[in-house]
Design a protein around this nucleic acid. Structure first.
Lengths: 139, 139
DNA sequence: AGATATACTGAGTTTAGCTCACTATGAGCT
DNA sequence: AGCTCATAGTGAGCTAAACTCAGTATATCT
């Protein structure tokens, strides 16, 4: 006799499973990790250079973790650090042209993977799912 | 003009975000990691001892990874290994009473967190969501 | 000027996976 | 029986994505 609690547990398990499998399905041929991709995407979405702390904030991670991701992306030439003219403690992180290009590539791959999954649903179901997930995501 | 590709990308991002936040909301006071919890839950759901390889299969991880999780749970006294009488290569992993107890505790915590999230949806919406996610999860 | 707060980072840890290679045992074939 | 191949588990070692704690440089506030 499943109750609402059961439903919650099942939904949690399904969400986890889907995310895990989707992520693993992405044997990207571009050498950018998932975390790095998220940071690139955030920068692109912002449309302007951001501080590491702001990136951390938007990514939902602690600032120290953002530093590492930026380090690796910078080493790969996908972002560049420059001093913040307004505050000498701070640095600004900007996408390089190479970063933008890589972002586009990965985005397409990820989209392909997700599309092939959600193609199992009808268009109506897709928009229902989107709607429900959005409701769950609002802060 | 959002097309099906956009929908896929949005759904992917939402799924990730929900899972990440839910997991972090779980500052468990029981000393069992998320991966360990998943294994305990799988064992409990099976209702009988399972082989590590079967656990790995159900958890969607490679067998070697299951070995490590079982190691840690066994060290904590939450599961027990015993030889499989039917196949001397194999071992069977069973929940101990302590494991069952811990599982119950964590389940309640997790359920509370997830329930408080999905309470935003009506019962009908919840079952719709469950249905859609199940469709996405079928192999 | 001094205290406190903020921005970033070095050092080290944890979690949750992974691969590769090895041992022991089972199963199928001749 | 003997050989070959497959399966079950695990040791060793790696990667990713987070974390904490502590330290330095710079801002801000009184």
């Amino acid at each position: 006799m499943p109750g609402p609690d059961d439903t919650a547990e099942q939904i949690a398990a399904l969400l986890e499973g889907i995310v895990r499998r989707q992520r693993r399905a992405l044997k990207q041929d571009v050498d950018v990790t998932h975390g790095q991709f998220r940071l690139l995407r955030t920068l692109d979405h912002a449309g302007q250079p951001l501080r590491p702390s702001e990136l951390a904030n938007q990514l939902g991670i602690v600032p120290r973790s953002a530093t590492t991701v930026v380090d690796d992306l910078e080493a790969a030439g996908l972002v560049a650090r420059r001093p913040d003219p307004a505050d000498r403690r701070a640095t600004l992180v900007a996408l390089t042209p190479a970063g933008t290009k890589v972002l586009t590539t990965i985005r397409r791959q990820r989209r392909d993977a997700m599309v092939s999954l959600i193609e199992r649903l009808t268009l109506t179901e897709q928009s229902t799912l989107l709607h429900l997930l959005t409701r769950l995501s609002d802060d």
